[in-house]
């Protein structure tokens, strides 16, 4: 399957224009920044604020935007029409995902700055965020593929929001119910671990383990979303 930058860029530009004029959806770009202001005024009373902020933003911004972009095309039958053009599956997915990626990266950077969070290691922090954005984009793609309309897409995000953002808290229950230890392997829990590392006194293992788990999630979800995309569109 060939990838053409020209076609992917055309899809990027088209989606950018559509998205920026759809105020009902593009308003979600503001939420992470609003949250950041809220948490900043709370000050140091909330030690886990950055983890909560990033995990929620990744779902309501990254996943939701991607799901809505895909569902809207499905709703209007333009996705099927796109498949009849020379644009390949990867062109379409890359075009859409890169738009969501750029938006998420910019908004997350701004809200991290507003919150005043300073990562222990800027390299690991960036890597973790980049992987997470890709991961949540893939999750959004899957949600979009299972919904027929934009409305359905925004609802299908709820389970994702529940499982992914709830996981770090669920892990607290692990003391009483060992089953919940599984939740510790969710990418959101791992991201919280990474963010919680102090300036000093962490080993390479402390950094590497969360990163590797997030990477594994990213690879699996990306592959699943591409396979599902190809299969779902053939069925219709």
């Amino acid at each position: 399957m060939s990838i053409s930058l020209k076609r992917a860029r055309a899809i990027f530009v088209k989606d950018y224009k559509e998205f920026s004029r759809n105020y009902a959806i593009s308003i979600i770009l503001v939420f992470p920044i609003l949250f950041a202001f809220l948490f900043r005024s709370a000050g140091s009373a909330l030690p886990g604020a950055i983890g909560f902020l990033l995990n929620t933003s990744l779902v309501i911004l990254t996943s939701l935007a991607q799901a809505c972009l895909i569902a809207e095309e499905k709703e209007r039958n333009t996705l099927r029409s796109l498949m009849l053009t020379p644009a390949t599956t990867l062109d379409v997915l890359i075009g859409k995902s890169s738009l969501v990626f750029v938006m998420s990266a910019v908004v997350l950077a701004i809200s991290t700055y507003i919150l005043g969070y300073e990562p222990a290691n800027i390299g690991t922090f960036t890597a973790a965020i980049i992987l997470s954005i890709i991961l949540y984009t893939a999750a959004g793609t899957i949600c979009g593929l299972f919904s027929k309309t934009v409305l359905e897409a925004s609802l299908s995000i709820l389970p994702v929001a529940f499982i992914f953002t709830g996981a770090p808290w669920g892990a607290v229950l692990a003391k009483d119910y060992p089953v919940f230890k599984v939740l510790d392997f969710m990418p959101s829990s791992q991201l919280v671990h990474l963010l919680g590392l102090g300036d000093t006194g962490y080993t390479t293992g402390d950094v590497l383990k969360p990163l590797l788990i997030i990477l594994a999630w990213t690879v699996v979800l990306t592959v699943v979303s591409v396979v599902l995309y190809v299969r779902r569109l053939k069925d219709e």
Binding site: K6, V13, R76
Partner: peptide, 23 residues
């Protein structure tokens, strides 16, 4: 007959998009 269109693009943007995407 059910074919929809990108409602928020202008006509010119749509034609430009179709030109690019179909090379």
């Amino acid at each position: 007959v059910q074919q929809g269109e990108y409602m928020r693009l202008t006509v010119e943007e749509l034609i430009t998009f179709l030109i690019h995407v179909s090379e």
